[in-house]
Amino acid sequence: MPRNALYASIVLVLAVTAAVVSFIEGNWLGVVWVLMAGVASNIAWFYIRKDRIERARAEQN
């Protein structure tokens, strides 16, 4: 797993945890954490897909 994807996955887990805690406490700031989790998820998938494409190109050559 690429390093950037790993970091994004860690941010994703932390953001989801923060969102759950915020909603349990009745704080609507959890919406921001949910949005951050979505962005982190997209970043992680981007770097994972990029790594797969680069590996496939390297195997073809």
Rank of each mutant, 00 (worst) to 15 (best):
V39I: 15
A44S: 14
R52S: 12
V32D: 13
T17Y: 11
P2E: 02
K50C: 01
K50G: 09
I10S: 02
T17F: 12
F46P: 01
W45Q: 13
R3Q: 11
S41F: 14
N4W: 01
T17H: 02
N42W: 10
V16I: 15
A18Q: 06
R57M: 15
V32K: 08
A58H: 02
N27E: 15
M1N: 11
I48T: 10
E59D: 15
L6R: 04
A18F: 09
A8D: 01
A58I: 02
N27A: 14
L12K: 08
K50W: 09
L35D: 02
T17S: 09
A44H: 07
A56R: 09
K50H: 04
I10M: 08
N42H: 07
A19L: 06
A40M: 03
R57P: 04
L29D: 09
Y7Q: 13
R57I: 14
V34H: 11
V32I: 15
S22V: 07
W33D: 03
V39A: 11
N4R: 12
I43Y: 08
W45D: 08
F46W: 14
W28G: 09
V11N: 03
A8H: 00
A40C: 03
L29Y: 03
V21T: 13
L12A: 01
S9M: 13
E59C: 06
R57E: 15
M1L: 14
R57L: 15
A37G: 12
I48V: 14
W33S: 12
R3T: 12
V16T: 10
L35C: 04
P2C: 00
R3F: 12
L6Q: 05
A56G: 05
Q60V: 13
V16L: 14
L29T: 07
D51L: 06
I53V: 13
E25Q: 07
L29W: 11
F23I: 06
M36K: 03
F46Y: 15
E54M: 09
R49D: 14
I43W: 04
Y47A: 01
I43G: 01
V32L: 15
E25I: 03
A40G: 01
A18S: 13
V20K: 04
G38L: 05
